[in-house]
Design a protein around this nucleic acid. Structure first.
Length: 825
DNA sequence: AGCACGCCGACT
DNA sequence: GTCGGCGTGCTC
């Protein structure tokens, strides 16, 4: 008996191991195994169990099976195989992504001095190691020894000294069971119903009886810590009663659900509008068929998509006894969002969130695995939730780019959701006010069933949107101040300022959006034109005024902000390109009485900072909330009656085919924050491109019109949804070697396409990536484009398996394959 | 990704 | 001899 084992390493194949007889019962597909690999042991997953191996003599035996029941259930394993195949990633890496980190952490080797060899004959290497270990106490990680003493191969040295008994090697982990927080609970083990039985049991032991009766009065059980420190009973007392079998102490796992506290604010049971009821009926009918399919729900902002989700969950979970997955973009995973589901389904809801610790995530995973919780609300990776009998998978804000993982495996959670739902016979519901154009095209083509909620609930109109032409605004100011005067950038135009002032006076709230962090986007010398750039990345540095520092938003490099130009010595530096920090300063000056909150990556660093800020807004402690795209999604505050976009043009000119689509989506989403309550609302969009179709369509709340115009620009040359793309990125630390490698790789593909007469796959490039250096690595790319996902997949797989970059250890060349890329930067 | 191995040139 | 630097190839 043999097993094919998938290891979490960047190797595009599995390895065959022999299974010793005593492990055969446990060796099943999806179970974790510990196997010898190279010089050490590693954790992998059994991909399949087989009777025979091609080269049985090469197969080493499995050391141990780590799961009593496979940690990857069969449906999850199948899903991971699909991802590995489609997105060109090793199965082991996919499984590591799909399962909680605690299960896959690999082991660490330590070395320590066992016996001092004194002056015994040692090679220079060995002496060096012994000297190193003499200097410090205890176990030293082998990786550290290597780092400190040099890059030489240390394992043979360590192994020889181990045989001599001079050093000892220990391996910590691999962690089989992730840390689980437990508590000890004392409970009554034997009831004493009559007075007589009590006197017999306790006799003269007064304290024992007091403890027993106290426990009775508080419900029969309590935390031991509470009984001893809180109630003042000694631990010896407890032990005596346990010995008499009157009490018992159990270890209980403490669930660490950080959302437990926000839980169930009783939500009013809302009745669906006729439009919602129609959508719900269609979904419910689908769940009762064997192949429910995929639905795209296009509902304008405020149309009550969440109510549709909840009614679908009621049907699937309450009435059909199945389970369900709700995916939400990371930044929309707020207490408000979670609370709406918890209000209805209470503690049957698990939450998976990036702020969870490994242990917390493992707890949630297990509660889903056991069936204790039946609904999961979570970000991207929640699509791998380990439940059985999945009845529905909902992807909210399905157009969000954050559903695509930026590193291998580069999967898109929306696509994985569609595939998983199909595999498990569940309904897949994609919801958005501004669907991704791929999804929209699928709906148009009939691959997805289209459902629409064209109106807001309660007859609220969509807020009117007014355009403020920034060019005209600048001209107007210039005329009034004279032509020679340098004019500060328009941050808040007069019309917008008047509207804000009006809301503050009325006690209503305002949201201001600017999708750009920091104070100024770049710093430039007014004399010689020098612009400060990141030393590691080819991007300009952003100025943060409060900290007086320049930072790179790609690699997090920071430096002291300059006071004069290092090249020409000029003191007059200009800080250009308004960011949220500058807006904050401007509004503080313009509206000194307003209570202002800023929400962006810089103000939400701490674990629950988002929640604190949003809580203040909800309680009405904030008049004006300003921030980046983080404030554009999903927030539902009825007292927000004004939304202002400081500059709609941020991002519209990025060299990426989706830049326009993203701008339209962002404007529509943020506009949707206004007028959700009875007071109505209005929106101002400041722009220097008042005639751009993305801005005009957003102003008219016209998604369909936008999609038609955008489709035109994607047809020729063909970009998604009119073609499928594979982005191949070659990176390295040396510019010339990187370029040469990219050219060589592209030539290889080109040879493959012509040699095999492959039809319908085009090669575009190679060329430098739009951002041609990040974190000190030069970046080149080329694109494979095709109408046929099947042909593209075949070519991509052949390239992935057969092509190897020329080795160049100096340039540290790497290849990344990104199928269906979400951006080409 | 690691890691070992082997070749080469520098240094004792 | 011995060691570090660097390229190559393998891991069941």
């Amino acid at each position: 008996m043999f097993v094919e084992v998938a290891l979490p390493l960047p190797l595009p194949r599995t390895f065959t191991y022999a299974v010793p007889p005593e492990l055969r019962a446990q060796a099943r597909a999806g179970a974790r195994v510990l196997v010898p690999f190279g010089q050490r042991e590693r954790i992998g997953w059994i991909d399949r169990v087989v009777e025979t191996a091609a080269k049985p003599e090469r197969a080493k035996p499995v050391t141990a099976v780590l799961d009593a029941t496979p940690s990857a259930t069969l449906p999850i394993l199948k899903l991971c195989r699909w991802i590995a195949d489609y997105y060109l990633a090793p199965l082991g890496q996919v499984l590591r992504t799909a399962l909680p980190a605690g299960l896959t952490d690999s082991s660490t080797d330590f070395v320590t001095l066992a016996r001092d060899p004194g002056e015994a004959a040692l090679s220079e290497f060995e002496a060096k190691l012994v000297a190193f270990l003499r200097e410090r106490e205890g176990l030293q990680p082998v990786a550290r020894v290597r780092r400190v003493l040099g890059e030489r191969a240390w394992w043979p040295v360590i192994r020889r000294l181990e045989q001599e008994g001079i050093v000892r090697v220990e391996t910590e982990g691999p962690r089989v069971e992730p840390p689980v927080r437990t508590r000890r609970v004392v409970r009554i083990a034997r009831e004493l119903p009559t007075l007589l039985s009590r006197e017999e049991a306790f006799g003269r032991a007064k304290r024992q009886r007091e403890l027993y009766e106290t426990l009775e009065s508080i419900g029969g059980s309590a935390d031991t810590a509470h009984v001893t420190t809180g109630l003042g009973f000694g631990s010896e007392l407890i032990r005596q009663l346990v010995k008499k079998e009157l009490l018992a102490v159990d270890e209980e796992i403490i669930p660490r659900d950080p959302y437990a506290a926000i839980a169930a604010t009783a939500a009013p049971r809302l009745n669906p509008t006729p439009a919602q009821a129609g959508v719900i009926d269609a979904l419910v009918a689908a769940t009762r068929t064997s192949a429910p399919g995929t639905f795209l729900l296009r509902g304008v902002t405020g149309s009550g998509k969440t109510l549709v989700y909840i009614e679908l969950l009621r049907e699937v979970v309450d009435r059909q006894g199945k389970t369900a997955i709700v995916l939400v973009p990371e930044i929309a995973l707020t207490p408000q969002t979670v609370g709406r589901f918890k209000a209805v389904f209470g503690d049957r809801v698990a939450v998976l969130h990036s702020a969870l610790s490994d242990g917390e995530r493992y707890d949630e995973w297990r509660s889903l695995r056991s069936g204790e919780k039946r609904i999961v609300v979570g970000a991207r990776s929640a699509v791998f939730a380990p439940m059985e009998r999945v009845g529905a998978i909902i992807v909210d804000e399905e157009h969000e780019g954050s559903y695509k993982q930026g590193e291998a495996p580069r999967y898109h959670a929306r696509e994985v959701a569609v595939v998983r739902a199909r595999m498990e016979g569940a309904v897949c519901l994609l919801g958005s006010a501004t669907p991704a154009l791929e999804s929209w095209a699928n709906a148009q083509a009939g691959k997805y069933n289209l459902l629409e909620l064209p109106e807001r609930v309660g007859g609220q109109p969509l807020p009117p949107i007014k355009i403020v032409d920034l060019k005209k605004e600048r001209e107007r100011i210039r005329k009034s101040t004279g032509p020679l005067q340098e004019v500060a950038p328009v941050v808040v135009s007069d019309v917008l300022a008047a509207a804000v002032r009006d809301r503050i006076a009325k006690g209503e709230q305002t949201i201001l959006l600017l999708n750009r962090r920091g104070y100024a986007t770049f710093v430039q010398c007014r004399e010689c034109g020098l612009v400060w750039h990141c030393p590691q990345c080819n991007v300009s540095l952003t100025y943060h005024r409060k900290r007086h520092r320049l930072t790179c938003h790609y690699c997090l490099h920071e430096e002291e902000a300059p006071r004069h130009c290092p090249s020409c010595g000029e003191d007059d530096l200009s800080f250009k390109g308004v960011g949220t920090e500058q807006v904050e300063r401007a509004v503080e000056e313009a509206f000194p009485s307003a209570r202002i909150a800023r929400m962006d990556v810089d103000t939400t660093g701490a674990k629950w900072a988002h929640h604190d800020i949003l809580g203040r807004v909800e309680r009405g402690e904030v008049d004006l909330l300003l921030g980046t795209q983080m404030i554009a999604k999903g927030l539902d505050f009825p007292n927000v009656t004004l939304v202002g976009v400081i500059n709609a043009d941020v991002g519209i000119n990025l060299p990426d085919f989706r830049a326009t689509e993203r701008t339209f989506q962002l404007l529509t989403q943020v506009a949707g924050r206004a007028g959700r309550g009875v007071k109505g609302g209005e929106v101002f969009i400041q722009t220097a491109l008042p005639n751009h179709y993305a801005i005009l369509s957003a102003t008219d709340h016209d998604f369909v019109g936008f999609a038609e115009k955008e489709f035109e620009t994607r047809r020729e040359p063909a970009y998604p949804p009119f073609s499928r793309l594979l982005n191949v990125v070659v990176s390295g630390t040396e510019e010339n070697a990187t370029q040469a490698a990219a050219v060589e790789a592209a030539d290889w593909v080109s040879g493959l396409l012509t040699g095999r007469k492959v039809k319908g796959v085009a090669l575009v490039g190679p060329a430098p990536c739009p951002i041609d250096r990040i974190r000190g690595r030069w970046r080149w790319h080329f694109i494979l484009r095709s109408d046929s996902p099947k042909t593209l997949g075949e070519v991509a797989r052949y390239f992935y398996e057969k092509y190897r970059l020329p080795s160049n250890s100096k340039a540290d060349l790497r290849l990344a394959l990104d199928r269906d890329p979400v951006a080409l930067l």
